[in-house]
């Protein structure tokens, strides 16, 4: 049997949320930047994919594309995208300790250790990639 709930109404006021809500607070601003970073990373990936598709069309097409990328506008874009990518990754690895519980026997590995290990791993992996590609 379902109980009839007492039904009644009362008025409430819904406050509108201003479009600039994320500018009022540093933390919300950083959060929006993180959201925005996804946009830059996505555009970067599209460019990257386009470059790969040109590769299959031969050396010339790809060479020309590479030339275009050297222009000031694109360089600026890459710098910005790089900063966003680093920021995004940093925030991602920073919460690792919270997200993943790691146990050694009965003992819980402290959050900070997990985060530190994750961040260190990220730096090392990036360094290896950098080394391999710039050699």
């Amino acid at each position: 049997m379902k109980q009839p709930e007492p039904e009644y109404t009362y008025p409430t006021y819904h406050r509108p949320i201003p479009a600039t809500w994320w500018l009022r607070d540093r933390k919300y601003f950083l959060f929006m930047m993180r959201e925005l970073s996804s946009f830059f990373i996505a555009v970067f990936l599209l460019i990257y994919l386009y470059g790969l598709s040109l590769l299959s069309k031969g050396q010339a097409a790809y060479g020309q594309f590479q030339e275009t990328l050297r222009s000031g506008g694109f360089t600026l874009f890459f710098v910005v995208a790089f900063i966003f990518a680093v920021y995004h990754s940093w925030t991602w690895w920073s919460i690792m300790g919270k997200v993943q519980v790691v146990r050694l026997g009965d003992h819980k590995v402290p959050e900070r250790v997990i985060t530190a290990v994750a961040l260190a791993g990220w730096v090392v992996a990036s360094a290896v990639v950098l080394f391999v590609f710039t050699r």
Binding site: M1, K2, Q3, P4, E5, P6
Partner: peptide, 10 residues
């Protein structure tokens, strides 16, 4: 107590 549908909340 929320489990029980026969309890009405005022």
């Amino acid at each position: 107590a929320l489990k029980y549908d026969r309890i009405a909340w005022y």
